[in-house]
Design a protein around this nucleic acid. Structure first.
Lengths: 237, 237
DNA sequence: GGGACAGTTCGGCCGGGGCCGAAACGAGCC
DNA sequence: GGCTCGTTTCGGCCCCGGCCGAACTGTCCC
């Protein structure tokens, strides 16, 4: 039986994430974008040589995918499934680890609140904005939590009216679930992941409703975006 | 932001599972029952003193719950959420680890096939039986995979007709999802987890459709059970 | 070609942590 | 009380693995 091997395989896999440096890498990559080896090394505060070895292990273990461009080694999470797994693990780890420590100084506190307003979580919206959008979709009956999260009839109509298309394989067995609850570390509440969360974020970026700030997960809502959110969903920021 | 701490917290949590012995403990506990420290020590092939230390760490980390009875220390997975997390991790680990090794001898092969027919996965059915039941529910339209897995109108009626009741909080936000796809390591296909999977397994045990073999995850389908499965779901074993 | 720079490989250091056995503890049982 | 047995604590061993710096490779740019 595989579960005889489940022990060792599980241990080997968990060991990939059990190192603080590798965990920081994965956390950073949860912004859904590709990072270079050097960026990750600086972020984690280790020598480039150390980062290189870690990345090789993560790639070999199937957590990361790499792409070489010239003298750069770009690396990103291998699949959305990896992101989901990391989100689940982090949520659990944070929860069982007890409350998170308070910010150490004013600068960190303000940065926290800025990020809390709007940020990304892999490929969808998170932070206060993500939670607000999720609440609005539920309140307007576009998404139901009746028996697991799902898009309602009205929800599909609304998406069509906005010319927002879900990917064809979404929701089919083996495909990505349409809606997934993703616990927000900041808000301690759920925002929307899954194919719906991803396509909403993508749309918001394409239509310039939000734009990235710097190279992290932080987002800014544009004036157009604020208007659209208010009109389409009744979301007031 | 918590994700600054997400790295270290994630690493600390993953480290709990990164040890082969602790991973074997968790794998064994995926049968959903409480084991004593000594049983786990023998299963993993380590000294009782070693097992004791590991268990303390797992309990402190929130993965296991313990209950002392006389001179015994019973431990079990702390919550269904832990089981879900372990299932996801194991499935991913098995998948990315490449194909599982072939059975080493005839005895192991036969044991595999016996277990493959019917076994448990935490608190629901798995193996060939689990997959067959899942397929039958889908084929009869009692469960849909339209937009994530969900119980259909007909499904609810069917459950009521069988006097099978879902727990009241199931499917509500914060509650356990009603239906969850759980990848079967043996069959490489999904069977049903979630509240529905749990209540179906519980019902099957209560009505003596299946019974446990020994102390592992293996199950035997009783004659009554075979009849019930055939009549109610058209499942032929 | 030459210089700058990203990444990799290797050797060596060092600490953490898993393991055991011995001994202590404590519950059940006679 | 005295015995058994499951569990725990402690001390000590040892090895795995993360870290760095130095040297090397390969790419881009001038």
């Amino acid at each position: 039986m595989p579960q005889d091997h489940g022990g060792p395989a599980l241990a080997a896999f968990a060991a990939l994430l059990a190192d603080p440096t590798r965990a920081v890498f994965c956390s950073a990559l949860l912004d859904g974008r590709a990072w270079t080896a050097g960026e990750l090394a600086r972020t984690a505060g280790v020598a480039p040589s150390t980062a290189s070895e870690h990345l090789s292990r993560l790639v070999a273990g199937g957590l990361l995918a790499e792409e070489r461009q010239g003298r750069h080694r770009y690396v990103r999470l291998a699949t959305p499934a990896v992101a989901t797994l990391l989100e689940d693990l982090t949520a659990f780890a944070e929860a069982s680890h007890g409350g998170r420590p308070a910010p150490r100084n004013l600068r960190e506190a303000t940065r926290r609140s800025a990020e809390a307003r709007a940020r990304t979580c892999y490929d969808h919206l998170a932070g206060g904005l993500g939670v607000a959008v999720a609440d609005a979709l539920l309140a307007r009956g576009l998404v139901t939590a009746e028996a697991g999260l799902a898009v309602t009839e009205r929800g599909h109509a609304w998406l069509a009216a906005q010319s927002i298309e879900l990917p064809p394989r979404a929701g089919r067995p083996g495909g990505r679930p349409v809606v997934r609850s993703c616990l927000d570390w900041t808000e301690r509440r759920s925002h929307l992941g899954g194919a719906l969360g991803a396509v909403l974020f993508r749309t918001a970026l394409d239509r310039a409703w939000v734009e990235r700030i710097g190279s992290g997960r932080a987002l800014r809502v544009t004036p157009d975006g604020g208007r659209a959110l208010r009109e389409l969903l009744g979301v007031e920021l």
